[in-house]
Design a protein around this nucleic acid. Structure first.
Lengths: 112, 112
DNA sequence: TTGCATACCTAACAGCGTTAGATATCTAAC
DNA sequence: GTTAGATATCTAACGCTGTTAGGTATGCAA
């Protein structure tokens, strides 16, 4: 179970990274992220859908309703140019924090 | 400037990692983290002090008032056994998310 | 027709960073 | 001596976001 704070920090960059590979829809995103993380990341739909709505409102992704063969409507999302730019910034931020954390862990180890 | 969400996810493990090297106090923690991160991580005192209070309430750290030579009172914090255990769990969680993110970034790169 | 997977959505609540304050000491400059 | 900046801690109101707990609807298998 990933903590709420870590979830909040990683959801947006993960969605943008995933959509960079091609369009997808909410339900599929949840399944794919679970698979990619080896089961350690379990997103709830009640968390994800508002996130997708916010990201679309902010122009990071765009949506389009499509009908699947089974007759179920799906809302497909694709990444926008703004979303790609935002992802690049997110990745840099993430790496800065990750580097600082790793450095702190190493330092502590060395003094053990 | 690190985003609010990423800050919220990294503050606790960073404080615990830092205190694992020895006791410290709020003001010094802010300066040290800024230095360690090369200036990219700037914590505000209004963010940090409530975090320290919560962590103490949760038994992850313990505090003790001490007087510095200049006469200024400082509240020194030290990590507890529970804090060390919590940090280990945080590190595992962080690495799970980090691995998933890195994998997504690699996949995207490969398909470029 | 019952149950499960698929597929989407929203409202109330709780936790936490931001903004904007407050208080107090020490040191250096004017 | 008093002004300014660094040191050192704290709190209240606000906004954002995940959680909990619901709701709606279709397709398929038992």
């Amino acid at each position: 179970m990933i903590s709420k704070a870590l979830l909040a920090a990683s959801t947006k960059p993960m969605i943008l990274s995933f959509l960079r590979e091609g369009e997808s829809y909410g339900y599929e995103i949840i399944q794919s992220i679970r698979k990619i993380s080896g089961g350690s990341i379990e997103w709830s739909d009640a968390m994800l859908y508002p996130v997708l709505h916010r990201m679309e409102r902010d122009g990071l992704i765009a949506s389009e309703w499509k009908m699947s063969r089974e007759g179920r409507p799906r809302k497909y999302y694709s990444i926008t140019a703004k979303g790609r730019t935002d992802l690049e910034a997110d990745m840099k931020q993430w790496m800065k924090v990750h580097s600082a954390l790793v450095q702190l862990w190493k330092t502590a180890k060395a003094s053990d």
